[in-house]
Measured scan of single mutants.
Amino acid sequence: MSSSSWLLLSLVAVTAAQSTIEEQAKTFLDKFNHEAEDLFYQSSLASWNYNTNITEENVQNMNNAGDKWSAFLKEQSTLAQMYPLQEIQNLTVKLQLQALQQNGSSVLSEDKSKRLNTILNTMSTIYSTGKVCNPDNPQECLLLEPGLNEIMANSLDYNERLWAWESWRSEVGKQLRPLYEEYVVLKNEMARANHYEDYGDYWRGDYEVNGVDGYDYSRGQLIEDVEHTFEEIKPLYEHLHAYVRAKLMNAYPSYISPIGCLPAHLLGDMWGRFWTNLYSLTVPFGQKPNIDVTDAMVDQAWDAQRIFKEAEKFFVSVGLPNMTQGFWENSMLTDPGNVQKAVCHPTAWDLGKGDFRILMCTKVTMDDFLTAHHEMGHIQYDMAYAAQPFLLRNGANEGFHEAVGEIMSLSAATPKHLKSIGLLSPDFQEDNETEINFLLKQALTIVGTLPFTYMLEKWRWMVFKGEIPKDQWMKKWWEMKREIVGVVEPVPHDETYCDPASLFHVSNDYSF
């Protein structure tokens, strides 16, 4: 037999072997998808029940369902290793196997995995149920939502704001400190077992692309791009910072340095994350009609249902689908009040099986009107990829998912749209002054938050990498806050605090 014939037969044999492996992989994935749908849905439903009704029974049910899901994933991840990716030609099959071969938290021992889940659930519970009591009246206690958040959004009393700011960190942050220390250790162990340098590197892996249509993007490039983007917006932020400082000097004349940092408790919310609520103090042309339409919403008797129905109309107007019937029947759109304790931070849920929901303790404000559009943007994205195989139902990356939500809320905030839905009067006219007011309001929300987020994530990356010793977490946190964000702590904090974890995203294990 000629050498060319042998070569042809060899190629046929290799192709047949690849085809056999690929067919086996497809069969394996079909079985996995069928089983995963049910187990993931049960786990998601148990998590939803806990988040909307925080009880010991629900946390136990959530843990049990989560353990079943984790055990299943660990088993299936091991089985998926049997299919070598280099022998799979079908890109859809390869991407699913690649996702499943990534072990995630299931790489930890059973004891450590359970401990990590306990830590995460405990931190979430402390954050959502933590109360601050009035020292003069111990029976008068406030949760973060709505009590403390209400103070931080609306109060102009310097000392009341300081009390709310400090009490939240003292009551909740200190409880979270030992848990967060354990969390860092276990998450790093999980990341390294998955061949990442640390948990920050694991997060950045979400943005990594290897040879898809000839395109590559590394975790290191992400760090470079983040640094570059921050340097680009820094001059604009510094101008905004100086303008806000001048306006705060008028409101709090004896508390603000004309050349120094801004006190952290005066920036519009509990964390200084969004400066939106400073608009009334900083509006350049106050004689113009108010483009913050909160009062109009209240006057027109809007409620949470109306807010979300208007958001749905907005999405339908640009060619996107209505929310499902189940969305309206199962979402929690208002604070249950004293009936039950719930996690009030707005979140969009894709539970699986076409079950999409939003959890939000909606208030009738323009801020929540825009947040509703943001969260519904997440749901629209979830619905758009719902037909994909189970392992591919995700956003391109976390940042893109947020961008989908944010672009919709930005569009909904324009005076033209607000006028079209009757929240600005029919005779409202846009001119240079109203446009400047609008742009300032947008800058308070968007530009003001960028250094906050950059600095927070930089601190977390450094902590996970071990570049900040545990006994210097708070020292470095406030050094970076002053240097990068231009914000100063109103009272000193020692290493018993854990100020970063006083933010939902940190205590609940979300990256930005």
Rank of each mutant, 00 (worst) to 15 (best):
Q24M: 14
F72Y: 00
K26W: 04
D67P: 12
K31E: 15
I21C: 12
N90I: 00
A65H: 05
A46M: 09
A25T: 02
V93N: 12
M62L: 10
L95D: 03
I21M: 13
F28H: 15
W69H: 12
E23G: 01
L29T: 14
E37P: 12
E37Y: 13
E37D: 13
N49G: 00
L39S: 07
M82W: 11
Y50K: 11
K26F: 08
N49R: 05
K31F: 03
Q24I: 15
T92N: 00
N61I: 02
N61V: 06
Q42L: 00
W48R: 12
K26M: 06
L79N: 04
V59I: 10
L29P: 06
Q60C: 06
N63L: 06
N49Y: 02
E56L: 04
A25G: 04
L95Y: 01
L73P: 13
T92R: 00
D67K: 04
Y50H: 09
M82P: 15
K68F: 11
N33V: 11
Q98Y: 02
L73K: 06
Q96V: 13
E37I: 13
D67M: 07
E23K: 05
K74L: 05
L29M: 13
Y50D: 13
S19N: 09
T27M: 00
L39I: 01
Q98G: 02
E23A: 05
E35H: 12
F40E: 05
L91A: 04
Y83H: 15
L39W: 08
A46E: 11
Q60K: 03
H34K: 15
L95P: 10
Y41H: 15
D30G: 14
Q96M: 10
N61K: 06
E23T: 01
T27F: 00
Q42K: 02
I21L: 12
Y41R: 00
I21H: 12
A71D: 06
E22Y: 10
N90A: 00
N64P: 13
E56W: 03
L91H: 10
L95N: 05
Q89S: 01
Q60M: 03
K31W: 00
L45Y: 12
T27I: 06
Y83P: 14
E57N: 04
Y83Q: 15
N49D: 04
F72T: 11
N51V: 10
N49S: 01
A46T: 12
E75C: 00
L29K: 11
D38Q: 14
V93L: 07
E75A: 00
L39V: 01
K31S: 15
F72W: 01
E56R: 02
L95M: 02
M82K: 11
N63C: 03
Q76H: 12
A65F: 03
Q24S: 14
T20F: 12
T92C: 00
N63E: 11
N61A: 06
W69V: 00
N33K: 14
I54N: 11
T92D: 00
